[in-house]
Amino acid sequence: MSLDKYKQINLTFAYQMSSIIKESINIDYEYYTKGFVLEIIEKNKLLLVKFSKFTILHFYIEKEIWNKLNYETSHYMKEHECEIAIEKLYNIVDLYNPLFYKEIDVFDLLEQENQEDSEESYLNLCNSIIDILYQEIEKYMPNMVEDVFYVLFQDREFLLEFNLMLSNIISEIKYEDESEIMRKDGVLKRCSYFPKWLKEGIFFRDKGRCQKCNTNLTGTITMGTNYNWDHIVPLSLGGINDATNIQLLCEKCNKIKSDKEIYTSNKYFRFW
C-alpha cells in the first residue's frame, strides 16, 4: 500500500500506541532488546550503518503493534471472550477502513452463529473472523506504523532513550562477528552520506534551529551560520546511523559536543 507524503493521521491509535512503546522502552528488558537487535542484524544488518526511510524505529513500532494485538487476542480467546477479542481488532480496522462493515458484518455473523450452532462451530467462526481482521490489519500496517512514527519522531527525548536502549546491545557486537558493519575498534561504521530526504526531514522536525543553543539556522534571520547533522548517541558510544539518531546542531555546538557526550533537547516554541 502506497503512503502519501501529505496524509491524514489517526491520532487516537497513534497516541495510544506511542504510549505503549514508550513504556516498553522504560521497562527495557535486556533479553527483548537484544533479540530485537539480533533480528535486525539477521534480516538487514545494513539498516544499522546506512540511512533508510524505513528506520529502526519503524521496525520496532511494527513489532510492538503485532505484539500488542497477539497478546490481547490470545488473552481474550483463552478467557473464552472471543467477542471482546474480535471487537478490539474490529475497532482498529474501522479506524483505517470505515467501510469494512459493508464487506462483512462480523457481529451479525456472530449473533446468527451463536443462536443456531454448537460452541465448537461458534469458536471456529470466531477464529475465521479473527483471521480476516488480521489480514485487514496487515493491509493497513504501513499506515499504522507511519502514524505512530509521526508522533514518536517529534519526541527527541524519546529518541534519545530509544537509541540508548539500542546502544547497550550494539556496544557488545564484536568486529570478528560482524565485520561488514563494525570497525576493528568495536564501533559501527560511519555512514558519510546523508541523503537529501534525511536532511530535509531533520531540518523540518527541528524547525531549522540548533538543538543545543537554539540558533536560527534557516538563513532568513541570520546569515553565515553553518549547521551540521549530529548523532544524538555518538557512534563511539554504540550509536547507529539511523534517522532517529540524528539532530540539527550549529557548527559551533557540533564541534564543542564530543564523541563521548549524549545530548538532545525537547524544547519547543509556544504558539503564543
Rank of each mutant, 00 (worst) to 15 (best):
M1N: 15
L3P: 06
D4G: 13
K7L: 06
Q8P: 03
F13L: 03
Y15N: 10
E23T: 10
S24I: 11
S24P: 01
I27H: 09
I27R: 00
Y31Q: 05
G35S: 03
F36I: 03
L38T: 06
E39M: 09
I40S: 01
I41Q: 07
E42M: 05
K45L: 15
L46S: 14
V49T: 00
K50L: 11
K53R: 15
F54C: 04
I61T: 01
I61P: 04
K63C: 09
E64V: 09
E64W: 00
K68S: 05
L69N: 01
L69S: 06
H75F: 13
H75K: 04
Y76K: 12
M77K: 09
E79M: 02
C82A: 13
C82Q: 14
C82S: 15
E83M: 00
A85M: 11
N91V: 08
D94L: 15
N97F: 14
L99W: 04
L110Q: 12
Q112M: 09
Q115W: 08
Y122P: 00
L123D: 08
C126I: 10
I129V: 05
Y134E: 06
P142V: 07
M144Y: 10
V145C: 05
Y150A: 08
Y150K: 01
V151Y: 13
R156D: 03
E157M: 08
F158I: 05
L160S: 08
F162Y: 04
L164Q: 12
L166D: 04
I170T: 04
E172W: 01
Y175E: 03
I181H: 06
I181N: 11
V187Y: 12
C191N: 15
Y193V: 15
P195K: 11
P195R: 14
K196W: 00
F204L: 12
K207D: 13
G208M: 13
G208W: 01
L217Q: 04
L217G: 09
T220W: 10
T225E: 12
Y227V: 06
P234V: 05
L235Y: 08
T244H: 05
N254D: 11
S258Y: 11
N266E: 04
N266M: 02
